[in-house]
């Protein structure tokens, strides 16, 4: 139960951050990526603010033996910079630039993004589901 409450509030904080920073506006995300045009650097401040807090926050939290409501920290162990990582990141960037959407804002927009967001979400959730069902793995 505590785990669910922590998750809900973490998801809520994340969503609030996305809305307040306007990451939920695809046009603003595209303007951030449009460095050769009418560039809007705002979203660098989103990432900067998030990184600053997470960098120092993780140092405090990961110094503990275990999380408050779990037996251990689930941290990625892979160190390989391989073709999967590179091609996956490259593809993600292409879809991000085409739409102005990454997974978090797309999910947050589901109730108020109008019909457009449903097309993106159908593609996103459908492809993630198919991928995971074909290549079952934990993460």
């Amino acid at each position: 139960m505590q785990r669910a409450i922590v998750s809900f509030f973490a998801g809520g904080l994340f969503g609030a951050g996305l809305v307040i920073s306007q990451m939920t506006n695809p046009a603003k995300v595209i303007a951030f990526l449009d460095i050769f045009g009418n560039w809007d650097p705002s979203l660098a401040f989103v990432m900067g603010g998030a990184l600053l807090i997470t960098f120092f926050g993780y140092r405090l939290v990961l110094g503990k033996n275990a999380p408050a409501f779990e037996t251990k920290f689930y941290l990625p162990t892979s160190k390989n910079i391989d073709g999967r990582l590179i091609s996956g990141a490259a593809l993600f960037g292409i879809g991000w630039g085409l739409s102005g959407l990454c997974p978090g804002p797309a999910i947050s927009l589901s109730t108020f993004g109008g019909p457009n967001i449903l097309y993106f979400l159908a593609g996103l959730i459908g492809s993630v589901a198919v991928y995971r069902l074909l290549f079952a793995r934990t993460s």
Partner: peptide, 21 residues
């Protein structure tokens, strides 16, 4: 507003690691 939003996202990441790892 971008920095405030970013701080909230950072707090979310820290909370999820603190509570659930």
């Amino acid at each position: 507003s971008a920095t405030i939003g970013g701080i909230l996202i950072g707090l979310s990441a820290v909370l999820l690691m603190y509570g659930n790892g």
